[in-house]
């Protein structure tokens, strides 16, 4: 028995695949899985929302959001609520008893909460220069209620959270990827919803005032100030691509021959 030094060929225990190629394949594969997941979640939420009657939704969530409002904004809260109910008169058979909650935040934002509550921020009330302008934002939120977007958003949020934690909860790296993809996906879903809500809001404004002046003003200022972002950043991030939507609104109004000029109702601004 003799020792004969020999070396094995180099590279047998290391795959020849280039790391960058591997990275590309992996990212593509994971994205595909995630895209499929987003579609499945989206569809199942669409399906589920159809089976939840608005009455049940209103009963379930009912007064819940009422408690969010700060008492010192009660006068404004009532004013916005009156505005919302006036606008809702042009939506016959609206299944909700609309309520308004004013939150203390300085950011400009509004949100439709399950159960028929519209949340507006202090920042929005401060920024609104006419009642018409505010009416459009409130009408936009009413549009979300008509399309049941508030339930969709809630449902998607819960489902994403559940599936992501079931699938990737243990994984150290994935959240960075999945979080980003999830945000992008939400945005894709949102775009259509926002557009539909915009048009409905515009219809309500036209029905209430006989013209749509002021409706676009809000967006115009948003667009002109998006470069600076600042306190408008919050609104832009949940209501993406303002310039596209402004254009859509103009086209929509023009098609129907709605007047873009008219007398604006004053909105008593608060500080």
């Amino acid at each position: 028995m003799r020792f004969e030094p020999r070396a094995p060929r180099e590279g047998i225990n290391v795959s020849a695949t280039h790391p960058l190629r591997e990275a590309a394949l992996l990212v593509a594969g994971v994205s595909a899985i995630f895209a499929a997941l987003i579609l499945v979640v989206g569809w199942s939420v669409e399906w589920a929302v159809r089976w939840i009657p608005p009455e049940l939704e209103a009963r379930t969530f009912g007064d819940w959001a009422h408690h969010l409002s700060s008492p010192e904004h009660e006068a404004e809260r009532l004013a916005v609520e009156a505005l919302a109910r006036r606008l809702a008169m042009h939506w016959p058979g609206a299944p909700y008893e609309f309520q308004v909650t004013v939150s203390d935040e300085p950011e400009v934002n509004a949100m439709a909460l399950p159960g028929g509550t519209i949340l507006v921020t202090k920042g929005l009330l401060r920024e609104s220069q006419s009642e018409n302008e505010l009416a459009f934002v409130v009408g936009h939120e009413l549009g979300h209620f008509r399309n049941r977007d508030q339930l969709r958003r809630l449902g998607r949020g819960i489902l994403y959270e559940l599936t992501a934690s079931a699938l990737f909860g243990f994984n150290a790296t994935a959240p960075e990827v999945t979080g980003f993809l999830g945000q992008m996906a939400d945005r894709g879903f949102d775009r259509e919803q926002e557009r539909a809500a915009d048009r409905f809001g515009l219809e309500l404004v036209q029905a209430e005032y006989g013209h749509v002046a002021g409706a676009g003003r809000f967006f115009e200022r948003l667009v002109s100030r998006t470069s600076g972002l600042g306190d408008l950043a919050a609104y832009v991030s949940t209501h993406p691509a303002s310039s596209d939507r402004l254009e859509d609104l103009r086209d929509y109004a023009a098609e129907r021959g709605w007047r873009r000029e008219g007398v604006l109702q004053p909105w008593t601004r608060s500080d």
């Binding site: 028995m1 003799r2 020792f3 004969e4 030094p5 020999r6 094995p8 047998i12 225990n13 699938l167």
Partner: peptide
């Protein structure tokens, strides 16, 4: 055994899918 050459080894790292 008439000749011996040294240690040889083989490895693979695998992950299971979710």
């Amino acid at each position: 055994i008439v000749e011996f050459y040294g240690v040889v080894s083989g490895n693979t790292v695998r992950a299971k899918h979710v």
